[in-house]
Write a protein that binds this DNA or RNA. Structure first.
Lengths: 203, 203
DNA sequence: TGATCATTTGACCATGCGGTCAACAACGTA
DNA sequence: TACGTTGTTGACCGCATGGTCAAATGATCA
């Protein structure tokens, strides 16, 4: 029938994503995207509809990938559910303390959104709730395992960890070092039970 | 001698700050600033040197003001130091859950900065450490009061609360509601001691 | 009153922006 | 091989941007 596309959407979104992660939405130029993706302005426009729409696509991809990654981190392994959460939070802290750590698309979306009805916010909120749901499942496993009191409010705890991780991201971006950030992570984990001295991450 | 200025720097910075809080740095135009401050481009340029420099000034003012506000919130009142911290964190949660809540200049600076050596980052990091210092003092008071164990790592706890507050800010921005956010705040406060059921804030 | 000099004013400028257009190219089909 | 459809290409557009300039302004002081 018609001329086939020269590109794969996934690859284009992935390239665009890298640019957005570095520059954000407002500071990224259509030209940046053209250079990064290799396709022409018009092709970009045909396929996605513009800068903002492309960002939205990248954001959705990012949300899916983040959910997948966390889901895997919290399910696999021979450690107990509680230990998996502990390890995960600590790993994020270490990640965020890297001096070249970038701000996630999700956070950028929140900051650059114009309000709560902005798709930038709604998509990100959905992502946050998805993550919280994943944490909740793991916490339920931990409770079943007897590592958490029966009356613990799991969804709330889950949302709490989302907040802590978001906060650590920002602190890392500010240049707060690894030692301080892991200490923050360990403090945050104390709500799960007292003994938080051992370091479950082989750093 | 020479012609005196028609404006007060403080007022100009304050007006500019409002614009920056709403739009961020990149998305704010010089014209927005001209309109908000009432002075001409050239006057702005003479007095501050450009958009970015003006943002930096606004950021520094914001840092000072935030430090002053927190300092006061944590010192005055007849409540115990621990109760003051609890009240403070909960109040921030409620604040952030307002649907029209904006993202602080500090967070904007972090997200829009180009790296750790960017002044946007260094100023904000200094602000973060200043806040952590203020929290630390209050926590010391609490420990002296016998409300915290003698071996608690206070600076770490302080930084932890900075992270939690930053995280709640983002969640609020995403549209996470008041109930969920106060629950997060209460969870975060559990690291200070077990009984966190009573609500010390008259909401 | 007139000289001084930072401030103000509004016009001005080059650039880069997001987006569009029309001509052209590649594919399946007839 | 001619056609219809869709994708690609590079030139193009109007506009808003951050920043600059030269002339006018007005407090102060001699």
């Amino acid at each position: 029938m018609a001329r086939p596309r020269k590109f794969v959407e996934r690859d284009v979104i992935s390239s665009a994503s890298e640019v957005f992660v570095v520059n954000g939405l407002a500071a990224t130029t259509l030209d940046d995207l053209v250079r990064a993706t290799g396709l022409g302005k018009q092709s970009l426009y045909n396929a996605f509809g513009g800068k903002r729409e492309l960002f939205l696509r990248a954001l959705s991809e990012d949300r899916d990938e983040a959910a997948r990654a966390v889901s895997e981190a919290l399910q696999h392994g021979d450690a107990s559910p509680l230990e998996r959460i502990r390890g995960h939070v600590l790993r994020r802290a270490i990640e965020f303390s890297r001096s070249d750590s970038r701000v996630s698309l999700a956070t950028r979306a929140l900051v650059e959104s114009t309000g709560e009805q902005d798709q930038l916010s709604t998509v990100t909120k959905a992502g946050i709730e998805e993550l919280a749901g994943i944490y909740t499942h793991c916490l339920e496993d931990a409770r079943r395992n007897g590592d958490l009191p029966p009356d613990a409010n799991l969804p709330s705890l889950a949302m709490y960890f989302v907040a802590v991780i978001r906060g650590m991201e920002l602190l890392g971006r500010a240049g707060v070092g690894r030692a301080a950030l892991t200490a923050v992570a360990l403090d945050s984990l104390r709500v799960l039970g007292a003994e938080a001295d051992a370091d479950p991450v082989q750093a």
